[in-house]
């Protein structure tokens, strides 16, 4: 990895990267809220450069991280950092709101939990559980009978083993989200195929970072 801090640099790159992956298009605007230790020490650790580097799609050992703000300006990304505590959140938490060139948008909240590891626990306000250590599918779907079975059955037929599964449903009958961590690889085609299943709104494949 590129220094100086695994929590504040490498973990921050991963958080930015996961946000970009979920947006699935070139981001043009980023609003980043920093909480706790992130807010107090972000400039010293290069957390700002790291988050922006991740949002640009750089991996944690990319030598361009130190100049990421220049790269971002060149690619037309506008960004803003806001230091405001998120009550109850882990000390190293960032809430990243991205807007894409095609009009898409996403808000991802996650923490850098030490040694470069991360935990993304909110996606557009819904509870998710993305560590970035395993290949992960985030599936937005309608809260209807059979939606989960359809997805897991399809994965079973594809020979993909589920390592962990979490479901969050803010309200009955509304939009729900599955976070599915799998063992080994997920073929791109699997995510594509899951999208055409009934009641599925969106599927994002986040490869281990």
């Amino acid at each position: 990895m590129i220094g100086p801090s695994s929590s504040h640099t490498a973990g921050a790159v991963r958080l930015g990267y996961v946000a970009r992956k979920i947006l699935e298009e070139e981001p043009v605007r980023a609003e980043i809220q920093l909480s706790g230790s992130f807010a107090q020490t972000y400039r010293g650790h290069g957390t700002d450069k790291a988050l922006i580097a991740g949002i640009l799609g750089f991996p944690p050992d990319d030598a361009r991280i130190r100049d990421s703000l220049t790269h971002a300006a060149k690619r037309g990304l506008k960004w803003e950092f806001i230091c405001e505590n998120i009550p109850g959140a882990h000390p190293n938490t960032a809430r990243i709101t991205l807007a894409g060139a095609q009009g898409g948008g996403v808000t991802v909240q996650g923490a850098s939990v030490g040694g470069g590891n991360i935990l993304v626990d909110r996606l557009n306000g819904m509870a998710v559980h993305v560590t970035g250590r395993n290949n992960t599918l985030v599936v937005l779907h309608k809260d209807k009978p059979g939606a989960i079975a359809a997805v897991t059955n399809f994965m079973a037929y594809s020979g993909v083993n589920i390592g962990s599964f979490r479901l969050a449903r803010p309200e009955k009958g509304g939009t729900a989200v599955m976070t599915i961590e799998v063992d080994g690889d997920i073929p791109d085609i699997l995510a594509e195929n899951l999208r055409i299943l009934p009641n599925i709104i969106h599927v994002v494949l986040i490869r281990a970072v």
Binding site: M1, S5, S6, T9, A10, D61, A63, G114, G115, G116
Partner: peptide, 8 residues
């Protein structure tokens, strides 16, 4: 570039 061991 360094190896986080366990951290930077």
């Amino acid at each position: 570039r360094i190896v986080a061991a366990p951290t930077a």
